[in-house]
Design a protein around this nucleic acid. Structure first.
Lengths: 341, 341
DNA sequence: AATCGATGCGGAATCGCTTCCACATTTCAC
DNA sequence: GTGAAATGTGGAAGCGATTCCGCATCGATT
């Protein structure tokens, strides 16, 4: 294995100078730096991150904690984070485990404590008391994305407002019987944002005096989940809502497919609105509220880098707007229109 | 920061003994071990991975290289890998970048060389010459999943055979005009498995003497991709195939939705078969060939652990079978049946 | 001409742990 | 009862980088 001593010898300098030349810290003559860099390249030298980490106390590794990899939102944020970290030449250590698992607990107890991470990005985490304690005692920068802000820097959309706007859109179209689809049946896997969205739906219904119509159908937060719950909900002709707010686009799309299967026409018989602007939204012509999780991941890295440069910097919170994207799955309530032909 | 010296002092032993007690290597009296463990717990001690890594030469970190996080297959494998690594108390360093990007190159040049990884799991990687060279010069165990086997341990299904079986299924149902949907338009993002599947389709068509019908419609490998390409392909009534093999379920499902939108009934007018058994497959009643990427990820970790324990162990290759799952999107070709009613 | 700050480089200490080696004690076989 | 092997512990030597400190040189300022 070639070490910095080999590089230094080849360049005719001391290890100290070689280190300065390669890390860019301290005074080094331009010519010397060039010689060292050449030598390093010729030898295929790469510094041992363990040795460097031991003396500097920093590892150039950021931990990313998240509950799931398969949900679109999480995967997109992760891609953004990965992209940005790579550009900053940081490594990304991934820790994903569902909220209630034993592995999740081991993760927090074991991995986050090992002086191994320069910072943490928590995606969609609603931490338990125990986990919160761990995160706080982890005396390094933490940035949260789409979850509790933990008193730290954070980036997210205003989920509650987004769901309220989505619901108000349907109300504005004349709908009154509007159901909300989402929120895990067992309640344990419901992420923070999902909870806020339900609250936003309730807000809008309440403000419009539609409390009597508030209906929350729980389902696994996925397309098949939305399909299954939608099929059940819509099968009953007499109590069929005319509007549907999906906790996210995946659920909304699932419900649309269920509706079609039942011969219910979207949007003339049923209006459906989602939240996210998923990759699939366009092909289903889904009206939705748009967020850009990839960009949120990138932004999270920026916030983290700022904290890393200046640990005393005040935490920042980015609250992105989620603009509504009008497409074809929402329309005026039938009774509020003159009958067609 | 509490170090091992603090733990040792509290337990009334030397650092050397404390280290042995905590790592489990060497002789330590049971009573001593207990005292050390108690002291460590009380102090909230966790060893510095940098210091340990420096002296042992191993970091308990596995690198995972993959082209995309949003495709179902990759995300599932990653979840399996994550799960298994967590159980083995290994960290997972994620490196994902599309095949042709500058970041991808930086990844291979910079990250993989830093003596930082004990091993690598490559998911769906068809490495360029340069990347292959890097992987080989990385003198540590490599396991590939669903890609080139690189002369190393590997786990995958036989993609070529799977696509052949899928195609033969349609041929067996009397279809002759069978198109293959998949393979990125620009060709650069086509993964290894995708290429093999196309080959398997060709094999089957050739064996059945249907070379004249071989048709490969390229599309982005995603549900919207399959939808778009399917819509174009099926719009032309006169050259409409009666059977469709999707490179994966996402594409197949996209095509099914396109067909429905065009008023083409599945399976009576058009049979569609996929490969993967995606989470969505069941709700679309999709006939497909099943693979279990999560389990493949777990298996990859097992192979890697074996290589880690004994670096001279011969590479192993796991070739999982992909059983066909009959559902409702394939049916006998219309002309081979007596007309219904 | 003397002084000062900026620049350039090398020696040596240091980070926190693991492990080699030496030494002491116990256990066991013959 | 003796030698050998097994067990238990501590001192000290690293692992491979970074960085503090000291020294030398050079140009510019007073």
């Amino acid at each position: 294995m070639t070490g910095i001593a080999d590089v230094a010898a080849r360049a005719g300098v001391s290890p100290a100078t070689a280190s300065r030349a390669l890390t860019g810290r301290g005074y080094v003559a331009a010519a010397t730096r060039l010689r060292v860099e050449t030598a390093a390249r010729e030898l295929g030298y790469a510094a041992s991150s363990s040795a460097a980490g031991l003396v500097t106390g920093r590892t150039r590794t950021i931990g990313v904690v998240m509950p799931s990899l398969t949900r679109w939102f999480f995967a997109e944020v992760l891609e953004g984070v990965q992209h940005a970290l790579l550009e900053h030449r940081y490594d990304l250590a991934l820790y994903s485990a569902p909220s209630d698992s034993a592995l999740r607990r081991a993760m927090f107890d074991f991995f986050l404590t090992r002086k191994r991470l320069d910072g943490i990005i928590a995606i969609g985490i609603e931490p338990s008391a125990h986990e919160l304690e761990r995160l706080i005692s982890f005396a390094r920068p933490v940035v949260s994305v789409g979850g509790h802000h933990l008193g730290t820097s954070a980036v997210s959309i205003d989920d509650r407002a987004a769901a309220r706007i989505a619901t108000e859109h349907l109300i504005g179209l004349g709908h009154r019987d509007i159901a909300f689809l989402g929120g895990d049946p067992d309640g344990r896997h419901t992420s923070f944002g999902d909870g806020m969205r339900l609250a936003g739906y309730r807000d809008a219904m309440h403000e419009a005096g539609l409390d009597a119509f508030v209906r929350h159908t729980r389902c696994v937060v996925s397309m098949p989940g939305g399909y299954g719950a939608g099929a059940t909900l819509l099968a009953d002709r007499r109590h069929r809502p005319t509007g549907l707010v999906g906790v996210c686009d995946e659920v909304a799309v699932g419900a649309i497919i269920a509706a079609r299967r039942l011969g219910i026409r979207v949007p003339s018989d049923l209006s459906v609105i989602g939240i996210d602007d998923h990759h699939y939204a366009e092909m289903f012509s889904l009206t939705t509220l748009q967020q850009r999780p990839f960009d949120q991941g990138v932004a999270a890295v920026q916030l983290l880098m700022r904290q890393l440069e200046d640990p005393d910097a005040a935490p920042e919170r980015i609250h992105d707007a989620a603009p509504i994207v009008m497409r074809g799955t929402t329309a005026a309530h039938a009774s509020s229109l003159a009958p067609v032909d």
